[in-house]
């Protein structure tokens, strides 16, 4: 039996969704000029809080809501540190990851081995019955549609709205944005909260849909991949989608190659998602370069005067 491209495509979308959600949040944060390396910590806290809320309420919707709140709460901590107390962003983000991994494990004691309420698949009327595409694109759960819709919304908002313009200005030249009367710190804080909420959703997608259960450390580096994907995307939402699908696709495909018994060494296959991502990025970035990186990324801003 060969590898069925339709099921592969279907599953790669599912596998990519947590990375996509978290990456999308981080993309907005970075566009505002802030580098939050705490994605992993926010994801896993979202994963556990979403799981607990869903189990107790019986409602996945409440679970996702709680996950977004938890991710945002952790992000707020990062925001206060870096925007108000002007702490170093890289170190604060890494500390957030440590803290999130610890906190989530503590919160999750007693929740291992339980199944959460199921998240239903939402077949889109008419579209799900399309041949091939119907199965690949239109028979997913609501979060998948939501994540793709969020890509479109954010891409549009960044490009064509006043909000997007302000956000980008804050990320490119906070001094000038401040001089124009924009509240740089407030805008960055909002972006950080939004990023945390999306990271929380990404984590909850793992614990409620993809895996679905709670286990300590279950994000297993997904937050780091999300961060890498933001760089990969050149800070452009649609390219982030592409990157997440590429990474998810190679991951899913390499396991299927193995399952099929294709004689490529398993250890080479297991490296392939990372190597291929690097190679594709080299191809994309050669020549045009990293023009997309926000100019003020990672630099603290303090309004003087």
């Amino acid at each position: 039996m060969g590898i069925d491209p339709v099921t592969l495509a279907f599953w790669l979308i599912v596998a990519a969704t947590p990375i996509l959600l978290a990456g999308l949040g981080e993309l907005v944060v970075e566009r505002a000029g802030v580098l939050n390396l705490g994605v992993e910590g926010m994801m896993i806290t979202g994963a556990v809080c979403g799981f607990i809320a869903a189990v107790h309420s019986g409602s996945p919707v409440l679970g996702f809501l709680a996950a977004a709140l938890a991710g945002a709460a952790l992000a707020l901590l990062f925001g206060v540190l870096t925007q108000i107390l002007l702490a170093n962003q890289v170190a604060s983000g890494l500390a957030l990851t440590l803290f999130g991994l610890g906190l989530s494990a503590l919160l999750g004691i007693g929740y291992s081995g339980i199944s959460p309420p199921p998240v239903p698949r939402l077949d889109l009327p008419g579209l799900s019955d399309l041949p091939v595409l119907g199965r690949i694109l239109f028979s997913h759960d609501a979060m998948v549609y939501l994540s793709v819709a969020a890509v479109a919304a954010i891409a549009w908002a960044l490009r064509a709205t006043r909000w997007g313009l302000i956000l980008r200005a804050v990320g490119e030249n906070p001094g000038a944005a401040h001089a124009l009367g924009y509240k740089v710190v407030r805008i960055r804080l909002l972006a950080i909260l939004f990023g945390g909420a999306l990271a929380g959703l990404g984590g909850a997608y793992l614990s409620l849909v993809r895996v679905p259960q709670w286990t300590e450390g279950m994000t297993a580096g997904a937050g780091w991949i999300a961060l890498a994907m933001v760089v990969f995307s050149g800070w452009k939402p649609w390219r982030l989608l592409l990157g997440a699908w590429l990474f998810g696709g190679v991951t899913a495909a390499q396991l299927r190659f193995q399952a099929q018994g294709i004689p490529v060494p398993a250890e080479l296959l297991s490296m392939s998602p990372y190597v291929i991502t690097i190679l594709v990025l080299v191809l994309i970035s050669s020549g045009r370069g990293m023009a997309g990186a926000p100019a003020a990324l990672g630099r603290p801003f303090h309004a003087t005067g």
């Binding site: 540190l81 890494l94 500390a95 957030l96 610890g102 494990a105 503590l106």
Partner: peptide, 14 residues
């Protein structure tokens, strides 16, 4: 629990 130590380290860094 080991998790509490992680959280503790996180707080120290914060």
């Amino acid at each position: 629990p080991a998790a509490a130590i992680l959280a503790f380290q996180g707080m120290l860094l914060f």
